[in-house]
């Protein structure tokens, strides 16, 4: 790890000021500190924001819930309001990482956690995300865990978060503050596809600080978060899935489907949702939706299974949720 200036901020404004354009915010540290040790991240200034008063979980006027950016993953998952009203989020959080990591990792940190692509971590490998223009060793290398949707010739990495997949399905909103003031961004627009600039992963501008995430008022969803991985626990997703379904009188009134482990961002399967809404909630519709979810998949050498896996997961989860309606 390179030497860096360690700074502590007393409040949000001071944090933004201390960070300046090049500084990094340190919250739980579970991802940033690891990347700093690998010297993938090399900040000269690190602003410790872990003591800022941003860890509350509070009701929003109008029925939503605000998650402080520094609320720990474990605390969000254990929060009674989250468990009762947004179980898909609780389940996603609980399927991520390990209990120890969830005790440190924060909502804000989870939003900006970086890919687990092994070539990104390996300083001797070519990686456009780490070093723009260097090339991508994952393309011709081990890409079993890489993207099938929305990738570019420059980058086939996937976003590793479980939480963000659930937030995408919930249509949550990310609240930011920064040198240019405060603003809010829908979570579905927060993460970017790699395109020609895979090193630009979110809409965050230099110095921006995530302050909270807003969950919209709940609907009468039936929802679930499912995750397939290489062992029973404590592993990143091969494919994960957040589904919210509202079926009334045999028809799908509303549906949200977000996939994890398949793209550079949590992947909302809008075309699959369109197949469902207004149609009969039957297996034929679910088949169509499942096929639509992966219709655009462009597999690499080793990950064609992900499209089939995602299709089956979408279908099965819809069938199960419809059964609960």
């Amino acid at each position: 790890m390179r030497e860096f200036a360690y700074l502590r901020a007393a409040d949000v404004a001071e944090a933004v000021e201390l960070a300046g354009p090049q500084g990094k915010y340190l919250a739980g540290g579970t991802n940033l500190f690891d990347l700093m040790r690998e010297e993938v991240e090399r900040p000269e200034r690190v602003v410790d924001i872990s003591r800022l008063p941003l860890s509350a979980i509070e009701p929003l006027p109008g029925g939503g819930l605000r998650l402080g950016a520094l609320a720990r993953n474990a605390h969000v998952a254990a929060d009674d309001r989250v468990r009762r009203r947004y179980p898909v989020l609780a389940r996603a959080l609980l399927k991520g990482a390990s209990p120890q990591l969830r005790n440190r990792a924060t909502v804000g940190g989870n939003l900006v956690q970086r890919t687990r692509c092994r070539y990104f971590y390996d300083l001797t490998a070519a990686c456009n995300k780490r070093e723009p223009g260097a090339g991508c060793d994952a393309l011709g290398g081990f890409n079993r865990t890489h993207a099938i949707l929305g990738a570019s010739p420059n980058c086939v990495a996937v976003h590793p978060s479980d939480m963000c997949v659930a937030l995408a399905a919930l249509d949550a909103t990310v609240n930011l503050t920064g040198p240019d003031g405060e603003r809010s961004v829908p979570v579905t627009g927060f993460h970017l596809l790699p395109g020609g600039t895979p090193h630009v992963e979110t809409v965050l501008r230099n110095g921006d600080l995530i302050t909270s995430v807003d969950l919209p008022p709940e609907r009468p969803w039936h929802g679930d978060y499912v995750k397939v991985r290489d062992r029973a626990s404590y592993a990143f997703a091969l494919v994960s899935l957040a589904v919210l379904l509202d079926v009334r009188h045999g028809r799908t009134v509303a549906a949200r489907i977000a996939l994890g482990g398949v793209a550079h961002k949590p992947w909302r399967a809008y075309s699959a949702e369109e197949q469902l809404v207004g149609a009969a909630a039957d297996e034929a519709a679910f088949d169509r939706a499942a096929a639509a979810a992966v219709a655009e998949a462009r597999p690499l050498d080793h990950n064609a299974f992900k499209a089939e896996l995602a299709r089956r997961l979408v279908r099965r989860t819809l069938v199960e949720l419809a059964g609960q309606s």
């Binding site: 540290g29 579970t30 690891d34 872990s50 390990s98 120890q100 005790n103 440190r104």
Partner: peptide
């Protein structure tokens, strides 16, 4: 492992279990 992937470094911090390998001591 020094990367939060094994749990051998687990300690309690303010009563909660954490991976001490991923936690800067100054924090």
């Amino acid at each position: 492992c020094d990367q939060g992937a094994c749990g051998a470094c687990t300690v309690l911090a303010d009563g909660e279990r954490i991976n001490s390998c991923l936690t800067p001591a100054v924090q």
